[in-house]
Write a protein that binds this DNA or RNA. Structure first.
Length: 614
DNA sequence: CCCCCCCC
């Protein structure tokens, strides 16, 4: 098998031309030790004609080298890169995203007979000597909305790079700096440090304080927008004092000398791969309002496309409120506090319905009569029951906003949408979702590989078999009060003391807490079964088991033997919890239902069909 | 350097 490289790409890139997704071969890599674990890798790349060693791997891709996926002779495709001029005639490529086309072992040899590329060996080298990054097309594409059909309104400022890259307005002279050119937000990367943007502040959070094992402090976030894109910025401590009061939502500022880093999509819906952190050097200077700067930016995900996005990510959504549930409340598992909630159903033209949960004040004050158009900027996407949405404290919620998308949805709903049929998300391919039948099929291996985030429980369903039940300590003497299951202390005088009720009782009840090792097709897992599930698995009540243990040990043992190697559909709750300074996956079995083989076979057939279609 | 956002 031979692999074709993009011959001539290195020369083109090094002379400032944008080459879209070139295919190159790795001929070597070298670690450049950095401070504080910030090692970088420099690569020798070849296009078959020329080789060049001025290519740096973005640090988030370091693992590719560490794992050996970039060994010598590997053929790669550059999905995203930028090329910066360090000094006239000296360019450095930074690889931001690569696809491995073929491993070094598979290729096994150097392709072609590449010569070392030297700056200045071509005629157009002088054309590009400005210190301005040349960004190749796919970088720009990555910023265009995923939902183009819903993003063409004037309120969404995602223009092409050519207009975004215009360098027309000068930043002001400041005591601390020299005049500079205004850069588009979309061109900012962690790999350049001399830039100035002119942006409108479209959102500004309250000041928040934190305190954790790494320290404490205060911070606030803001969103900055220009006609090329948007970026999230965070200011901490001193910078909060310095900037918080002077920053006003909707005003325009020149900003420079902040730190750029890779954005974490779990925490924001801002359409940018990077985010900004203010530092002691950062300058933010008010400007006259520039009416050419847009004032709103949404990256709406159509409801039927929510499945294409990662569970846990933060997204923007727009829909008509088809149904509003009554206000209700739940007890937070973590906080143990009561929280108000309200579920609404959102629909759009694609005829898919999704549940959105509003919390706290948003839930209490929400008026969904008259089927308003609801816009939520920054709500969390979850895969509970297929796909559901949950508003966050940071979500910006707007009812019937004056934007084109909202007007279009209004017209559509009033004419057709109100009487249309909608499909709902479901993760199991069977049974109506939203009717307490929600299922999130995942294997034990899936869950272990997901690195379930702390504080957030993952609910999932798997078909598995009991392979071991621990008889020891599977039950305890509990407080006889109906709602108190606290363990009692035997006073050895015929009374049992409950510390929670601060009372002594002449009796107790048996409660089960059964450790079980379950196996599914992928892996096995120790799980905890409390009263109801333990009774279901053992086929005996806690009281019966308690008596049996004291009266007939053989019969007691037999119950465990007989319960072992039976299969069930298990509903589980998995969560990473700290345990002696280490994070452990704690899994609780919520229910164990005998396998309905007709239903389960149907599910398997659906899964197989989906695999074949993919 | 935050990043919790709750329930099934």
């Amino acid at each position: 098998m031979s692999y074709e490289l993009t011959t001539g790409a290195i020369e083109q890139i090094m002379t400032g031309e944008a080459v879209v997704k070139p295919v190159l071969q790795v001929l070597g890599s070298k670690m450049i030790a950095g401070s504080g674990g910030a090692d970088r890798y420099r690569l020798l790349l070849s296009d078959g004609k020329y080789s060049h060693s001025s290519a740096m791997l973005a640090t988030q891709l370091n693992n590719l080298v560490i794992n050996g996926e970039m060994e010598t002779f590997t053929v790669i495709q550059l999905e995203k890169y930028i090329c910066n001029t360090i000094q006239p005639g000296r360019r450095v490529m930074i690889l931001l995203e690569v696809t491995i086309i073929a491993s070094g072992a598979t290729v096994g040899k150097k392709i072609g007979n590449p010569q070392q590329f030297k700056a200045g060996q071509t005629s157009n080298e002088q054309a590009q000597s400005e210190n301005k990054p040349v960004v190749q097309q796919p970088v720009q594409n990555s910023r265009t909305p995923l939902s183009s059909n819903m993003n063409n309104g004037p309120a969404t400022p995602h223009r092409g790079l050519s207009s975004g890259m215009k360098v027309s307005q000068n930043a002001p002279n400041t005591p601390g700096g020299t005049p500079g050119k205004v850069h588009p937000i979309s061109s900012l990367t962690p790999y350049q440090n001399r830039w100035c943007i002119k942006a409108r502040v479209t959102n500004k959070s309250a000041v928040r304080t934190w305190s954790n094992s790494r320290g404490e402090g205060k911070l606030f976030n803001m969103t900055l927008l220009d006609d090329s894109g948007e970026i999230r910025a965070t200011a901490f401590k001193n910078e909060v004092d310095k900037f918080y009061d002077m920053i006003e939502i909707n005003k325009v500022y020149f900003i420079r000398k902040a730190t750029l880093k890779t954005a974490d999509k779990r925490y924001s819906s801002i359409n940018n791969d990077y985010e900004m952190t203010f530092n002691q050097e950062t300058e933010m200077i008010p400007s006259d309002d520039d009416k050419s700067l847009p004032s709103l930016s949404y990256n709406f995900i159509p409801i039927n496309e929510l499945e294409k996005h990662d569970s846990g990510s933060v997204i923007d959504v727009i829909g008509v409120v088809k149904h509003v549930a009554d206000l209700s409340s739940v007890i937070g598992r973590q906080s143990n506090k009561e929280v108000k909630k309200r579920d609404v159903q959102l629909v759009d033209e694609n005829k898919v319905l999704v549940r959105l949960t509003l919390w706290g004040n948003d839930a209490e004050t929400f008026d969904g009569s008259s089927n308003p158009v609801l816009v939520v900027k920054g709500c969390r996407l979850s895969d509970w029951g297929g796909r559901t949405l949950s508003a966050l404290a940071s979500s910006q919620i707007s009812i019937n906003p004056d934007i084109p998308e909202a007007h279009r949805l209004r017209g559509w709903y009033d004419t057709a949408g109100h009487s249309a049929d909608y499909s709902e998300f479901r993760s199991d391919g069977q049974g109506p979702s939203g009717s307490g039948f929600s299922t999130n099929w995942k294997s034990f291996a899936d869950i272990k590989g997901m690195a379930v985030s702390e504080n957030k429980a993952e609910y999932f369903t798997t078909k598995g078999t009991i392979i071991f039940l621990r008889k020891e300590n599977c039950m305890y003497q509990a407080c006889p009060q109906p709602d108190c299951n606290k363990k009692v202390i035997d006073q050895s005088n015929g009374f049992f003391r409950c510390e929670k009720c601060a009372k002594e009782y002449p009796n107790y009840k048996w409660r089960l807490i059964l450790s079980a090792n379950l196996a599914d097709y992928s892996d096995n897992q120790w799980v905890t079964c409390f009263q109801d599930t333990a009774e279901a698995i053992l086929g005996k009540s806690g009281e019966e088991l308690g008596q049996l243990r004291d009266q007939d040990e053989n019969a007691f043992d037999r119950i465990f033997t007989e319960a072992t190697f039976k299969s069930y559909v298990f509903k589980m709750r998995a969560k990473v919890e700290p345990y002696n300074d280490e994070a452990r996956l704690k899994t609780i079995c919520m229910s164990a239902t005998p396998v309905n083989f007709v239903d389960y076979s149907k599910k398997l057939i659906t899964d197989i069909e989906a695999m074949l279609a993919a």
